[in-house]
Amino acid sequence: MALLTVKGLTKSFESTQAVNSIGFTIHEGRCVALLGPNGAGKTTAIRMLTGLIAPTSGDIEFHGIGPGADRRSLIGFLPQVPAFYNWMTGREFLIYAGRLCGLSAKEAQTRSSELLERVGIASAAKRRIAGYSGGMKQRLGLAQALIHRPKLLILDEPVSALDPIGRREVMELLRSLKLETTVLFSTHVLHDAEELCDDVLIMRAGRIAVGGSIQDIRSEHRQPILSLEIEQDEHSRKWLQNWLKTPPAYVKTYSALSGGVRLVVDDVNAARRNLLAELVESDVRMTKLEIGHTTLEDLFMKAVTE
C-alpha cells in the first residue's frame, strides 16, 4: 500500500534548481534509500518532505490521513547534523520531544526509557547533552525521531559522519527498525543502500536518474562484461591501443583497467568468440579474461556521472 506519493516536486533557489520535478511513491513497510553524490539535492528533497522547506512547486501526498491533519505527526526525522538543547539531559530531551508529539507525560517517560535502552545510551540518559559524543548524539537523534512511533522514518545521511564502529552499530539499529516502520534514508554510499534497502532512488543534479526496487534495477540493468588483462610487453600494449580506437560493434562501452580493459558488451557469446579469435590471431599475450556482469555500482556510477 502506498504511504506517500510525490509528484513534480521542485525547489529553486535564487540561481540554482536544487530539486527538479522529482516524483516517486513510497510503499508502506519498505526501506527506501535516496542515493546520490553530494549536492544532488537529497537534503533539499528530504527537507521538503518534512515541511522544513516549502517546495517551489509540486505535491507531497500522504495517504491515509484526513484532510487538514498535520502530516508532521506521521514523520520522524533525523537531520544530517542533529542539534539539541545542550543544557538538557538526553532523557529530558526525549521526554520533551514526546510531549510535543502529543504523548502524555507518562507515555513520554516510558517511551523515553524504552528508546534510550534500545539505542544504547541508557547509561548517559541523565547526563547533559553538551557532553555527548557525535555517535551518542546520532543515537539520541534516532530515539527522538522514533518517540511517537512514526509511520515514516526519514533519516538524512544517518551514518556518514560516524566512525566505522558507530556506523556499524547504527546500521544494525536501522536493520531492526525497518521491520517496524517505513524508512527513507539518504546516503551517498551505495554499499549502505544495498545492505539495507528494498528500494532505491538514485538522484543526480536534482533529478531522479533511476528508481525502483533494488532487485528489479539489478536485473533490468544487468549487462555482461568482459574483463581482459594482458602482459605489459610492447606488442600487446600496442595491439590493445589500436584495437580500442575502433572497437567492434559488440562493445557498448569500455573503461580502462590497470593492465587491461573492461568491456560492457551486448551479446556475451559473440563477444567471447570474436575476442578470443582476435587475441589468437594477433598473438596477444593475454593473462586473464573474465566474464561477469555489471554490478549496482556500475549502474550507480553511470547514473551519477553521465
Binding site: 518534512t50 515541511g51 522544513l52 498535520d70 508532521r72 505527526s73 514523520i75 526525522f77 537531520p79 542533529p82 542539534a83 539539541f84 520531544a97 510535543l100 508529539c101 502529543g102 537523534g141 527522538q144 511517537h148
Partner: peptide, 8 residues
C-alpha cells in the same frame, strides 16, 4: 528544525 518537524 528538530522541533518544528514535530506537530508543533
Amino acid at each position: 528544525a528538530m522541533i518544528l518537524v514535530k506537530p508543533v
